[in-house]
Simulated assay, not measured.
Amino acid sequence: MYWIIILTLGVDQLFKYLVRNFMDYGQSISIINGFFQLTSHRNTGAAWGIFAGQKIFLISFAIIVIVIGLIYCRKVTDKLTRIAFGFFIGGAVGNVVDRLFFGEVTDMFEITFINYPIFNTADVFLVCGVILFFISTYKEKIRE
């Protein structure tokens, strides 16, 4: 699990570094015309901008969730659950790093065919972790 956290954090911070250093704020690069683009954006809040400007609250909440996840995962032996927590914790740490060092989170993925908030790699890993956790929980229920 720890190597997944480190890998996830590394990938997340690399993408954010590239966006911060090689794109102007607000600049968009079309990847799939009319569907998906890279857009340099910053967010001082959480998803959909909720809790905007509440840096201390967001960092504190994330650290609590990370610690609880690490404590819980030490007791877990299921491989899929440990991978899920690795993705989730790595994503959470990625966004905490941004808030600590930059005061905001760097976002870059924009789905243009729907009105959806711009998000980042840490968010992708967080969501993948949650989905894998639900799958592992469902598989466990089937085995019972």
Rank of each mutant, 00 (worst) to 15 (best):
M1K: 04
M1C: 09
Y2I: 12
W3M: 12
W3V: 13
I4D: 09
I5S: 11
I6T: 07
I6R: 00
T8K: 00
T8P: 01
L9M: 11
L9H: 00
L9Y: 04
L9F: 08
L9A: 09
V11W: 03
D12M: 02
D12P: 07
L14G: 03
L14A: 13
F15H: 07
K16W: 00
K16Y: 05
V19W: 00
R20S: 09
R20A: 10
F22Q: 06
M23W: 12
Q27V: 06
S28K: 06
I31T: 11
F36A: 10
F36D: 08
L38K: 05
T39G: 07
T39Y: 05
H41A: 14
R42Q: 09
T44D: 13
A46I: 01
A46Y: 05
A47H: 03
W48D: 12
W48F: 15
G49N: 11
G49F: 08
I50L: 09
F51V: 01
F51N: 13
A52Q: 15
G53D: 14
L58D: 02
I59L: 00
S60Y: 11
I63R: 05
I66S: 00
V67L: 15
L70E: 01
L70W: 02
R74V: 01
K75Y: 10
K75C: 00
K75H: 06
K75D: 11
V76N: 08
T77K: 14
L80R: 11
L80T: 09
T81S: 12
R82K: 14
R82N: 01
R82M: 08
I83V: 15
A84W: 01
F85I: 07
F85E: 07
G86C: 02
F88I: 04
G91T: 04
V93K: 04
V93A: 04
G94N: 02
N95Y: 05
V97L: 10
R99M: 03
R99F: 03
F102M: 06
F102K: 07
G103Y: 05
V105M: 08
T106D: 11
T106V: 14
D107L: 03
M108D: 04
M108F: 15
I111D: 07
T112G: 07
I114A: 13
I118E: 04
I118D: 01
F119V: 13
N120A: 07
N120K: 03
F125N: 05
F125T: 01
L126N: 09
V127N: 13
V127I: 12
C128E: 04
C128A: 15
C128F: 13
V130A: 15
F133Y: 12
F134K: 02
F134I: 15
F134V: 12
I135D: 07
S136Q: 03
S136M: 02
T137I: 04
T137S: 14
Y138S: 11
K141G: 00
I142D: 10
E144I: 03
